[in-house]
Amino acid sequence: MASNSRKTGVLAVATASVMLLAIYMLFFYLPPIKDEAGEVLSGSFRIFFFHMPIAIISYLAFGVVFAASILYLRDKSLKWDIYARSAAEVGTLFAFLVLVTGSIWAKDAWGWYWIWDLRLTTSLVLFLVYLAYTMLRKALEEPEKRARLSAVFGILGFISVPLSFFSIRLWRSAHPLMFGGNTGGSGGGLEGTALQLTLLVNFIAYFLLFLTLFSVKVQNERMEEELDSRRYAE
């Protein structure tokens, strides 16, 4: 236990320092960005540099839920359930942040808080699946049953998200492409080392944040299990 919490402490310090660096780069290192017409984009464009890492990590977290759920169903060990529920909780937070940062950016860039574009809508679906997962957990009391049923839902939910992506793409696609050749619309290609470096540092910062929150959560859950089992033993 003690060494675990020390590791978490180191992780937290690392997260904080990279996060500071990321924020610094965002405001002072990043050069002004011009679109194809040569006009400087508004400052809200900087949101992209943490919006995208947060979005990717919110999917990654659900990937952890998915993997832990499969492992739980395979060997019915409650440790996998701890990983699944911890990742789900942190993932819900990240998915929520995606929606918030996306909306703020959308308001500035297009004048609307919400647009039904492909990625934002997929993130909304992810968030809703997370919420449903949480609701299911809350509706079940017996630990073994809760772990088993939410594992099943975790698997289904993870599979439904990419399918949602394709069906939303079919339905509507108006989002600016950030990478690749086709840079039409209101966005622009991301080139230049300064931009890529800033994105990379931001990505590392939010990934570390996820790791920190995740390991703190896992430790809390373990302690709670410990408490429960001692209470039963008496």
Binding site: L131, G157, S164
Partner: peptide, 26 residues
């Protein structure tokens, strides 16, 4: 899955609808 939960009738739509999106849209 919701059979063993206390709030069966309420929980089913909450769980089902987000997963149905990929089938409802097309």
């Amino acid at each position: 899955l919701t059979l063993g939960t206390r709030t069966r009738e309420l929980l089913l739509p909450v769980l089902l609808l987000p997963l149905l999106l990929p089938v409802l849209i097309p």
